[in-house]
Simulated scan of single mutants.
Amino acid sequence: MLYEPVKTFVQIRKPDPKYQIGSGLVERIAKEIKENEIDIVVFGNQLSPSQKYNLAKNFKVEVIDKIELVLRIFYKHAKSREALLQVRLAELKYELPRAKEKVRLAKQGEQPGFGGYGDYEVEKYYQKVKREINIIKSKLEKLKKHRENLRKRRGNFDTVGLIGYTNAGKTSLLNALSGDRKEVKNQVFTTLSTTTRRIRGIKRRILITDTVGFMDDLPPFMIEAFLSTIEESANSDLILLVVDASDSLEEIERKLKVNYEVLDKINCKSPIITVFNKVDKITYEKREEILKSLKRYIVNPIFVSAKYNINLDKLKEMILENLNLSIGTVETDNPKLISYLYENTEILEDVLEDNKHIITFRAKEKDVNRILKAVRV
């Protein structure tokens, strides 16, 4: 946890151009800060630089909004070089339209959160931010090409991508399907880097990939900053869209919409299985209500519990059924071909007749056609 919440204030009114909130509430919060020695104030609404400056002037402590809080959480969990670059890109894209105003305000007098900006010339700082954005984009593009090369080397594997809202249990599901022990925390954005593992207990070479989770109400620039890692999952042969079944129906509906918006943005065409995780936390009636009320948003639904291994074998069966696989049969006594089939396809049946193996196998359609063509030659 970055910060320990002390008190929450809610005000429903038209946003004040100077403070975002009314001046009366500003006074109440300033008093609360002094009495409880509060270090920082976080706003759920997005603040303009001038609103932050005016609030910090009254509160005498740093003021940030929801976007800046999310960026700080991102930084806390970013481990890989790519994740750090993506967080920095999101931060700079947030900074760019505010850069000139921040510098002007800093020159009026230092306030918490504005330290250092006054050392810059307005236009020079703006151009500095733009240059850094372009440099980071170039570095991320190189890392993207590296990942594409890695994907090509995995040609013998089917790929499954985990997509879903943050804290839906994607990492827990990755662990349950792969037998991995990747750290799981009940916090948002604990996964920023791409993690790929092999699914165990299944007669196919299938890789499953987990990456950053989605969140509603985030501005487009933040989603765009992480598109490269999201694409790593979305470009898979099959998508597991992971949903927290214990959320309210309204929450589930909103989060599903966010998922589909992002998948549409990156032009994802892969088949989808909707995995409702944490089924151990809901009743049978809630399950039926989800299926009935949210039917228009659900594709190939299954209810599982990654924590208690509920329905995971059935999920593996669904993964096989939805991987767009084909079935082929060959008759051979070639030990190299038999070995290849056992290592690279799912063997459905192997019958020995007249010293020849009649093998029925399942694989990607292009691989089945290639194998059958090679046998006929």
Score class of each variant (00 low, 15 high):
residue 272 I to N: 03
residue 305 S to T: 14
residue 309 N to R: 15
residue 310 I to D: 07
residue 226 F to R: 13
residue 216 D to S: 14
residue 273 I to N: 05
residue 232 E to Y: 01
residue 214 F to G: 10
residue 251 E to M: 03
residue 191 T to F: 07
residue 194 T to W: 05
residue 313 D to Y: 13
residue 301 P to E: 10
residue 269 K to M: 10
residue 198 R to F: 01
residue 207 L to M: 08
residue 253 E to F: 02
residue 280 D to V: 01
residue 207 L to G: 00
residue 270 S to W: 04
residue 273 I to C: 03
residue 210 D to V: 01
residue 288 E to Y: 10
residue 270 S to P: 07
residue 301 P to L: 07
residue 219 P to R: 13
residue 238 L to N: 03
residue 186 N to G: 10
residue 303 F to H: 13
residue 253 E to Q: 09
residue 228 S to H: 12
residue 241 L to V: 06
residue 176 A to I: 12
residue 208 I to V: 13
residue 177 L to M: 12
residue 231 E to Q: 11
residue 188 V to C: 06
residue 247 D to P: 01
residue 213 G to M: 01
residue 188 V to K: 14
residue 267 N to H: 14
residue 197 R to W: 04
residue 195 T to N: 15
residue 297 Y to E: 07
residue 226 F to P: 08
residue 285 E to K: 08
residue 223 I to T: 08
residue 251 E to W: 03
residue 294 L to P: 09
residue 181 R to F: 13
residue 216 D to I: 06
residue 225 A to I: 10
residue 296 R to P: 00
residue 293 S to N: 13
residue 223 I to Q: 07
residue 301 P to D: 11
residue 263 L to W: 11
residue 207 L to R: 03
residue 212 V to C: 09
residue 277 N to P: 09
residue 185 K to F: 15
residue 291 L to R: 12
residue 178 S to T: 14
residue 181 R to T: 14
residue 210 D to K: 06
residue 189 F to M: 09
residue 299 V to W: 00
residue 201 G to L: 03
residue 285 E to H: 08
residue 313 D to W: 07
residue 217 D to L: 06
residue 205 R to T: 00
residue 259 N to H: 13
residue 209 T to A: 04
residue 176 A to L: 12
residue 234 A to H: 03
residue 288 E to H: 10
residue 306 A to Y: 11
residue 268 C to S: 15
residue 284 Y to G: 02
residue 214 F to H: 09
residue 223 I to E: 10
residue 217 D to T: 06
residue 265 K to A: 07
residue 259 N to D: 13
residue 303 F to G: 12
residue 211 T to V: 08
residue 262 V to K: 11
residue 285 E to V: 02
residue 197 R to E: 13
residue 201 G to W: 01
residue 235 N to L: 06
residue 279 V to Y: 07
residue 216 D to H: 07
residue 268 C to W: 11
residue 236 S to F: 03
residue 299 V to H: 06
residue 275 V to Q: 04
residue 308 Y to I: 05
residue 260 Y to K: 05
residue 263 L to K: 04
residue 306 A to G: 12
residue 254 R to V: 04
residue 184 V to Y: 08
residue 259 N to A: 15
residue 281 K to C: 01
residue 254 R to E: 12
residue 218 L to F: 09
residue 215 M to N: 11
residue 311 N to P: 12
residue 202 I to S: 00
residue 264 D to T: 10
residue 310 I to F: 15
residue 220 P to V: 08
residue 294 L to D: 05
residue 260 Y to V: 02
residue 287 R to L: 07
residue 312 L to A: 15
residue 300 N to W: 05
residue 183 E to K: 15
residue 241 L to H: 06
residue 205 R to M: 00
residue 190 T to G: 14
residue 264 D to G: 08
residue 308 Y to G: 09
residue 205 R to Q: 00
residue 180 D to V: 08
residue 264 D to M: 05
residue 301 P to R: 09
residue 263 L to T: 02
residue 194 T to K: 15
residue 270 S to D: 09
residue 198 R to A: 11
residue 196 T to W: 09
residue 229 T to G: 09
residue 202 I to T: 00
residue 234 A to V: 07
residue 218 L to V: 14
residue 205 R to C: 02
residue 273 I to Q: 05
residue 250 E to M: 01
residue 303 F to P: 09
residue 226 F to G: 05
residue 295 K to R: 13
residue 281 K to P: 06
residue 237 D to K: 02
